[in-house]
Structures are given as structure tokens and as C-alpha cells.
Computed example of a mutant assay.
Amino acid sequence: MADQALFDQVGEVVRGSAPRAAGPLRVQVRSNGVKVWYGDAAPPREHFEAQLVAADIVTDARVRALEIGWHAEHPREADNQALLDGLRAHEPRWRAALGDDAVAGVFLGRTTWRRISETWLDPDLDGPDAPFDIGVRLVDYISALQPHRAAP
């Protein structure tokens, strides 16, 4: 399956199953991923995402990895760290839902950004269940973390 078609389908899974309590759900599909947020029409620097990542920035990936989770991508490292610290204050709650694969820390390849996400090494993206599996896992992150974020 071409990456654009895959992420179109992932976007549909998210649209159909993400919680709506935080306001209008926004989904932006690209050829290398899907970005999800609540509120404004323009994507914010804090959002949820499933995206392909080059193997050279992910330890143990041979070809590429799929990263799924939450991102803070503000220009100032301190702003990103404050957002991560706010979520880490609720870690027992979201960790119970996301498990040990969720890494809370520095973003892949960008030391000023922060993340709570997991990586799937060299995933098979051609299987018929791939869009569903990716979309459901992204919704897991949205459901677990969104209630603990500051209002958009």
C-alpha cells in the first residue's frame, strides 16, 4: 500500500474513534504520516501524530520506523519540557493505558522538542490491518493523554 493511501485510512480510523470531548477534532494526512489535534484549523506545535521516521535516527531500525504518539514542537526547549513535565505529573494514569513502550523524553532527531511516543521498527505497512492497528494505537495515545493536557 502506498504511504499516502495508508495514512488516509489511518485518518479515517482516527476520525471514527477519537474522543470528541476536547472540541473539534482536526486530522491532517500527509504522505509520511497523519497529524491530529483539537481546536484551531492550523496545526499547533503540540499534537498527536503517527509518522514514518528514517532509520538513521531510530536505533535498531534497518529501513524505517513508524512513530506514534504525542509531540511538543515549540521553538523554545523550555516550553516543550514544561508541557512534558505537565503530562509526566499524571504518568501513573496514562502509563496504565499506554504501557512500557511509551517513551517520555527528547524527540527523535530534534533535541529541543519533546515526545511521549513509541516506535515500531521496520513495520509491515502493507498488511490489511496496518491502517486499523496504527489508527487504534494513535487513538490510545489521544485518549490517554488528552485529558491531562492544558485546554487548547
Rank of each mutant, 00 (worst) to 15 (best):
D100R: 15
D60V: 03
A65T: 02
G33I: 01
A21K: 11
D122M: 00
L98F: 11
Q28Y: 09
R114G: 00
D133H: 13
D124G: 07
H71G: 12
E67Q: 15
L121A: 02
G135A: 02
A104Y: 01
D60P: 06
N32Y: 12
A54N: 13
E91A: 15
P44Y: 06
Y38D: 06
Q146E: 14
H47F: 08
R30H: 11
A22T: 06
E118D: 05
W120H: 09
L125A: 04
D133I: 09
R114W: 00
R137L: 01
M1H: 10
D85R: 14
L25R: 02
L83P: 07
S17E: 13
G135W: 01
Q51V: 15
H90M: 10
G23R: 03
Q81H: 11
A151S: 15
G11C: 07
R20T: 15
A50K: 07
R88Y: 05
V36N: 05
G11N: 10
N32E: 09
H90F: 11
A18V: 03
V10H: 00
L25P: 02
L98W: 09
T112S: 14
Q146M: 12
D3W: 11
E73Q: 14
E49G: 02
R26T: 01
S17N: 13
D3G: 03
G127L: 01
V53M: 06
A102P: 07
G109M: 01
H74T: 14
N32K: 15
E77V: 07
H148A: 08
S17R: 11
W94K: 13
D3F: 08
A50M: 01
L87G: 12
T111N: 12
D56I: 02
H47K: 04
A21W: 03
A41Y: 12
A18W: 05
P92M: 10
K35C: 03
A151T: 15
S17H: 10
T111I: 11
M1K: 10
L84D: 07
Q9V: 05
T119Y: 01
A151H: 14
P24L: 07
D40C: 00
V136H: 11
D133L: 14
A151I: 06
V13D: 13
D56F: 08
R15Q: 13
A96W: 07
I142V: 15
Q81K: 14
A2R: 15
F107D: 13
G127S: 14
A150R: 14
A55F: 06
A102N: 09
N80W: 00
R26Q: 15
P19D: 03
P123R: 02
G69R: 01
G127V: 05
P24C: 00
A65K: 01
L52C: 00
K35M: 10
P92K: 12
R76F: 10
R45T: 09
A5M: 03
R110D: 11
A65C: 03
H148K: 08
E73I: 07
D133G: 10
D140Y: 04
R88E: 11
A54T: 08
R45P: 07
R114V: 04
A130R: 05
L84Y: 07
P19G: 06
A104K: 08
P147D: 02
W94V: 12
E46M: 12
